Structure formats: C-alpha cells, structure tokens
Computed example of a mutant assay.
Amino acid sequence: MKKWIVPIVIIVLVALWAMNVNNKAVGLEETVTKSWANVESSYQRRNDLIGNLVKTVQGAADFEKGTLEAVINARAKATSISIDPSNITPEQLAKFNEVQGGLSGALKSLLVTVERYPELKANQNFLELQSQLEGTENRINVARDRFNEAVEPYNKYVRTMPTKFVAGMLGFDEKGYYKADAGSENAPDVEFDFK
C-alpha cells in the first residue's frame, strides 16, 4: 500500500498543477477576448457615426459623389470582416486592420474634401459628428493598446516553461497582437486644393 502513496501524490499534484494552468490560462484568455470586444465596439461606434456623417454631408452639400461612395464602400467592407475572439491569429488581425485602414483613408479624404464646403463646416450637426468621430478614433486607439496589453501576459503565460506543455495540450495557443498598417509610421500628405 505504501508503494502507491508516492505515485498517487505525484499524480494528484500534477493534476492540481494542470488545473491551475488551465484556470489561469482561461482567465487570461477571457481578458484578451474582452479586450478584443472593446476594440470591435469602438469600431462599431465609428461605423454607426459614419452613417450619420454621410447623411449629414449628403443633405448639406452638393458633394463629390466619388469620395462619398468610397466612404460608403469602405464602411461596408469594414463591417463585413469579423474575428473570432477565441482564436485571434496574426493573419486575421492583418486582414481586419487592412479593411479598417481603408475606411480610415476614405474618412480622411472625406474630411479633406469637406474643407471646400464652408456651409457644411458651419453645420452644427456636421461639427458634432466630426468631433465624435475624432473622439471615436481616440477610443479605437486606446482599445487597440489595451488589447495588446491583455495579449502580452496571456502569451507570456502560455509560452513559458513548464506551463507551455500543459497549455498546449489544453489548446491554449499564442494570440496575435494588433499591428499598425504598413507605412503608417510615415506622416500622411494632406493637400488642400482650393481651385
């Protein structure tokens, strides 16, 4: 009977350790999932505001159709991409970032083109929407930063020894970080054509 005590104690300790690894990894993964939901929520807020912005612009100006269509199409693309928060891969984040970057570019074109319409710039609804969009862009940036902050401890935990073995067996894989668009380190060129 005594010869079984040591193996049983070892098995119980390993099982308790494995449960602890699982529980901590689940907690960290939930933090990552919640952080990603906050990123998506910020993008959804922006998409909702864009619809109102487009309607305000359409109603207040004889606007350039191409720019407006680019914003509408970019918004449609941005809302068509979704990511499964339980399996966030770098490839998924890159695709998501690509369509969101297209929307950001279309919005910049819209706001630069609006400079040609003084009556629109004076429209209180437009000014309020523009201010909300700026605030939303800041929220998106904060949410992306917080997402990366949540990914770091999770990745460290599931990638360090010896928890890496148990986490891997339990299906806890490394998560991708949110990365900036290629070329975003360069300042954008802003041109005002008042012809």
Rank of each mutant, 00 (worst) to 15 (best):
A182K: 15
F172T: 13
K55T: 11
G66N: 15
S86I: 09
P153T: 05
E191Q: 15
K34H: 14
G135M: 13
K195T: 02
V21N: 10
F192C: 13
K95R: 09
K34D: 09
K24N: 02
P7W: 00
V114P: 14
V14P: 14
I140Y: 01
T163Q: 15
V12W: 03
K65Y: 02
Y177L: 14
A37I: 06
A122N: 03
E149F: 13
D62E: 04
L93E: 00
G105V: 08
N22A: 05
I83M: 00
E174Y: 05
Y154G: 01
A15T: 13
L49Y: 15
K175F: 01
V158S: 08
L49I: 11
A60M: 13
E174D: 09
A74W: 00
K77A: 11
T163C: 10
D84M: 13
A37K: 15
D62A: 11
N87Y: 12
I50R: 00
I72T: 08
L129N: 04
T67Y: 07
P188E: 12
Q130G: 09
S41D: 07
I83D: 05
V12I: 06
K156S: 10
K2A: 07
G183T: 07
Y157T: 01
A122G: 06
K24I: 09
N20G: 14
V114Y: 00
E128M: 10
E128H: 08
E119Y: 00
W17C: 07
V21A: 06
I50Q: 10
P118R: 02
A150M: 08
G105A: 08
E64W: 01
K108P: 04
Y177F: 07
W4G: 06
N125D: 09
V99I: 09
V6L: 12
A150N: 03
T89I: 04
T33Q: 14
K195D: 03
T160E: 14
P7K: 00
S131I: 08
E185R: 10
S80Q: 05
V151R: 00
N87W: 14
F63A: 01
G101M: 11
I11F: 06
A61I: 09
V54F: 12
T136E: 04
